[in-house]
């Protein structure tokens, strides 16, 4: 096992670009290292530890965007009062990730790159129209988060690329909601996740744990734009069926996920409308 620990982004990108010696980026390690003891292959591959890349740390504000550096943690967001004021559900979601140990190590970029359909960070980012900034030796490119995933744990990132930042446009929101339905009230993996944001750009509805990827629910958004608030959860069923495809697994059932998603979505939209 080899671990590279560069101090500059350029050096990191150089190392990552060497196809002969592939490296796995390592940020907080809270996804990567979980299965360490039981997965021998995890102990033989090479790692690129990002922790010394100070350029990637922290949160930056500009006039039209909030930018999370690739090493920005949940804790960075929780403790920034401006985030709490402008993007309260970003803080809410961060507070529901694991507990304080994970919140202070886990990164938003790691949550995106890991690509779990049950992620808690991704839905809020997607509801805010976040853009993922990728960089390699060849240069930078940007991918909107709602176009980032192509399949179960498949993302737009190429092996030679790092996520260097997540850019969240600053829009005035009439409504922001985050709902995590887990099997218990803390330290849980979502059985259903939901983020809803309504701005001058319209409704954005994002669901988690109900499809192979975190999913933007465009049919639901259209339904809300065209016909206004639903009168019952069931009125959302048709649109949801077009958007999501929940399954039975160890953690829950397709039936439960579908019904609960409709109910929490119905409730979230109505509360905002009031």
């Amino acid at each position: 096992m080899k671990v590279e620990r560069p101090r500059a982004l350029a050096a990191a990108l150089g190392l990552l670009g060497d196809a002969a010696a592939p490296l796995v980026p390592l940020a907080g390690g809270t996804d990567l290292l979980v299965h360490w003891p039981v997965r021998p292959d995890a102990r033989t591959r090479g790692y690129l530890d990002l922790q010394r890349l100070d350029e990637l740390r922290g949160i930056r504000w500009s006039e039209d965007a909030l930018e999370l550096g690739a090493l920005a943690t949940y804790w960075d967001v929780i403790t920034d009062s401006r985030v709490g004021a402008e993007f309260p559900i970003l803080v809410e979601a961060a507070r529901q990730v694991g507990a304080i140990q994970i919140q202070s190590r886990g990164t938003w970029a790691g949550n995106v790159a890991n690509g779990s359909p049950a992620a808690d960070g991704v839905p809020v980012l997607m509801a805010f129209g976040a853009v993922i900034v990728l960089e390699s030796r060849q240069g930078r490119r940007e991918v909107p988060l709602d176009a980032y995933y192509s399949g179960y744990r498949e993302g737009a990132r190429r092996e030679a690329e790092l996520i260097v930042a997540i850019r969240i446009p600053r829009r005035a929101h009439a409504l922001q909601r985050f709902v995590k339905v887990g099997p218990r009230r803390a330290q849980a993996i979502a059985k259903v996740g939901l983020a809803v944001a309504r701005s001058e750009e319209g409704w954005r509805v994002v669901a988690a744990s109900v499809a192979p990827t975190v999913r933007r629910c465009r049919a639901v958004e259209r339904r809300l734009e065209e016909r206004g608030l639903p009168g019952s959860p069931e009125e959302l069923d048709d649109a949801l069926r077009a958007d999501v495809a929940p399954i039975d697994d160890l953690r829950s059932t397709a039936d439960y996920r579908a019904r609960v998603l409709a109910r929490v979505l119905f409730d979230a939209t109505r509360k905002g409308g009031a």
Partner: peptide
């Protein structure tokens, strides 16, 4: 047992 991990065998936390 399919869920022989503490992520999927759910015991109550103090919040519960």
């Amino acid at each position: 047992m399919q869920n022989a991990q503490l992520t999927n065998y759910i015991v109550p936390t103090s919040f519960d």
